[in-house]
Design a protein around this nucleic acid. Structure first.
Length: 714
DNA sequence: GTAGGGTTAG
């Protein structure tokens, strides 16, 4: 009899470890038949087996079948409910126990802690101190120290450490390791080091903890030295180095270590792969990433949700959004991070509609967003000026209680700042309500606020917020803020002030800033300053055709054909080529691309007919072609003909024909929209009553009822 | 036999 039960015990252990569920159940049946309810040990083993196999209800049923329960039986079923997160069941079992030992208490504490109730874990610990102080052991201390660092409570951490010292376990590794971790998570590298040295019998785990702690605190050299001097290293030691180096911006070294591991044939897991893929993404090294991906497929780890998410992220950052998408679609298990990686990836690759769509899909799959995810989704709305969808997400953030996170606030300020000229007031209100709710603004917040001021020509307010950012919030302005200020001043026609501002700036104005100034020089007809801006722009970025074209455009407007010819020559000499202009529109999951005068589209005839008809209606409304943006010295009628078939007009006409009435028409263009197309689109939006959005290389224009959100400035 | 220390992603 004893030998049979020993045999059964070891079989149970084996089956549950190899997740051989069917066999566990068969044994269960056999035990019930043959052993006549007499062997408590075997029943206890069964509980553990079911618990390990993630079947807490089976474990509980076995517990009920035991005629003669002992403390082990209770502890086994208690731990089963604690591990599986059935916390009220756990609580009931714990309360019904005839006696409790240290293991019982520890189970409940870790049950609460690992299922999102650290406060309850702490309460239980306090009860444990009162009811059975002598019971605490090294596992209690280690669990409690981990909780202390998770809820960032030093008071608790130190109390627990003192208790550990009282029990003669103050310098035990089980206490020392989490203590080191706790200090380093709080950024206290020296205290972590002291706790490390305090431990007499140091082991591998403690060393790994210390290496990680150095890396967490940015002490790269120290971590390398400790790692190099370690007597033994396991795959966690190596992975720790890879993770930490990547976090500290030493991605190349991290990839180097990974390759060493690989050639040494070491064990690797999801942590290793996840970290090294992050490194590849940060460096945008697609080839390296693909090689590692191929290797991961051979290890069968590509099924893992962590690794899959890291792959999606890596491919997105390498600008291979379709590869990222195919990984994402094939993943069987997706969590919040997976979805977010995909959503952010779409945004990084300028697929804003897809980003928004995947956000909605994610919610339909029952996954609740956090501040990071919903912030990214709102940014995507901002990027295509989709104010309505953005505003709906704004409501969601309020319902979910996420609206006070800085990620969300910034996205909202951007949304209302960029979306529409009339929304400046809302942006400022939003900003002020952030202040009232003591949400701390950062540099990004002010970019949104300053853009809003600039769009609404609120120059004084812009000055006020710029100064307040520096003086009240101690934020050092960067190039983007200066660009906003230049935008603000030059839009309002205060070119002299803009010039003074540029001369007083501590850093150089960036290319976007110069381009902004150049644009407003064009609008306000200040050719002298335009030259200054254009020359600075060309100096900054001699190969960018945009700078030449802006100046060329201006001279063409003033009919300085000689200057135009000179600029063209300069471009030829320097090998700068104008990127051919094209516009595209998405319809039925397909992208329809148009070039100027393009007749290659299958529906070309319909499109040209539509334009013809629109042209007649527009002229009736008062539209006259603005030929100033034709940069060639040709006859007026030729100019008119060239203008009429610009790529954005073709794309808009396509949208008018094919997109359902209630949908806004979203057109994208690789270059800037020309003046004539801008005027024409305003008329089209008025005649057709459609909302038309044109996202050009620099900003977007939202046309509605004859007006454009850019306020005719771009 | 039951609780159990170290490394992950957006």
């Amino acid at each position: 009899m004893t030998s049979i039960s020993k045999h059964y015990s070891s079989l149970l252990k084996l089956y549950s470890e190899t997740r051989y569920l069917v066999e566990v159940k068969k044994l269960h049946g056999l035990i019930l038949k043959t052993l006549h309810y007499s062997n408590t040990l075997l029943f206890n083993n069964l509980i553990t087996s079911y618990s390990k196999s993630n079947l807490p209800s089976y474990a509980y049923r076995v517990f009920l079948q035991i005629p003669c329960r002992n403390l082990f039986s209770w502890n086994a079923v208690l731990s089963s409910s604690a591990k599986s997160g059935h916390l009220s069941e756990m609580y009931n079992i714990f309360n019904s126990m005839p006696e409790r030992d240290c293991i019982s208490w520890n189970s409940v504490i870790s049950g609460y802690a690992s299922h999102g109730f650290p406060e309850k874990a702490v309460d239980t610990y306090k009860l444990m101190l009162r009811d059975g102080c002598s019971m605490q052991n090294r596992i209690t201390f280690s669990t409690m120290l981990i909780i202390s660092s998770a809820i960032v409570s030093f008071t608790l951490g130190i109390q627990v450490h003192c208790q550990g010292i009282k029990h003669g376990l103050g310098s035990h590794v089980f206490v020392g390791s989490p203590l080191v971790g706790m200090y380093s998570k709080a950024g206290l590298a020296y205290e972590a080091w002291l706790a490390f040295q305090e431990v007499k019998e140091k082991n591998l785990v403690l060393h790994n903890t210390m290496v990680m702690s150095f890396l967490r605190c940015g002490m790269i050299e120290e971590s390398k030295r400790l790692f190099a001097g370690m007597r033994e290293r396991d795959s966690i030691s190596w992975t720790t180095m890879i993770t930490g180096l990547t976090r500290n911006g030493c991605e190349l070294e991290a990839i180097g270590l990974f390759n060493k591991m690989r050639y040494a044939g070491m064990n690797m897991d999801q942590y290793t792969f996840g970290s090294v893929l992050t490194a590849c993404g940060a460096l945008a090294v697609l080839d390296q990433g693909k090689q590692i991906h191929a290797f991961i497929i051979r290890t069968l780890f590509d099924d893992n949700v962590f690794v899959g998410s890291a792959l999606v992220d890596m491919y997105s950052k390498c600008k291979s959004i379709r590869l990222a998408e195919s990984i994402f679609k094939r993943m069987k298990v997706k969590n919040l991070v997976t979805w977010t990686a995909m959503l952010v990836g779409y945004g990084q690759n300028e697929c804003y509609e897809e980003a928004i769509r995947s956000f909605l899909q994610m919610q339909r799959h029952g996954i609740e967003p956090d501040d990071f995810t919903i912030g990214s989704a709102i940014s995507s709305c901002a990027n295509i000026a989709s104010l309505e969808e953005g505003a709906q997400l704004h409501c969601r953030t309020i319902v979910l209680g996420l609206n006070s996170f800085i990620t969300v606030s910034n996205a909202l300020v951007t949304l209302y700042g960029y979306a529409q000229i009339g929304k400046a007031k809302e942006t400022i209100e939003l900003f002020e309500s952030m202040m009232a709710n003591s949400v701390k603004p950062d540099g990004v917040t002010f970019i949104g606020v300053l853009s809003a001021c600039s769009r609404a020509a609120m120059v004084e307010e812009g000055y006020y917020y710029f100064n307040s950012m520096i003086n009240d919030h101690q934020i050092v302005p960067v190039a983007d803020h200066y660009t906003c200020m230049i935008d603000l001043l030059s839009r309002a026609g205060r070119l002299k002030e803009a010039e003074d501002f540029i001369k007083k700036m501590p850093c150089r104005l960036d290319a976007i800033g110069w381009a902004t100034l150049l644009s407003s020089c064009r609008v306000h007809g200040n050719i002298e300053m335009a030259k200054w801006a254009a020359e600075s722009l060309i100096e900054l970025d001699p190969q960018n055709p945009a700078s030449y074209l802006l100046l060329l455009n201006m001279h063409a407007t003033n009919k300085n054909w000689e200057e135009v010819a000179q600029i063209r020559k300069a471009m030829r000499d320097k090998g700068v080529r104008k990127e051919p202009g094209c516009s595209w529109i998405k319809y039925n999951n397909k992208v329809h691309i148009f070039a100027a005068d393009d007749q290659s589209h299958p529906d070309s005839e319909k499109i040209y007919a539509e334009l013809e008809m629109l042209g007649l209606k527009m002229e009736k409304e008062g539209y006259r072609p603005n030929t100033s943006s034709v940069l060639h010295d040709v006859s007026e009628s030729e100019k008119r003909f060239m203008l009429g078939h610009h790529s954005e007009k073709l794309a808009i006409a396509f949208g008018l024909i094919f997109l359902p009435n209630k949908f806004p028409i979203r057109v994208f263009k690789n270059l800037r929209v020309c003046i004539d197309c801008h005027i024409a689109t305003k008329y089209i939006s008025k005649i057709t009553g459609r909302e038309i959005l044109v996202r050009d290389a620099v900003r977007f224009h939202k046309f509605n009822d004859g007006l454009c959100s850019c306020g005719d400035f771009w």
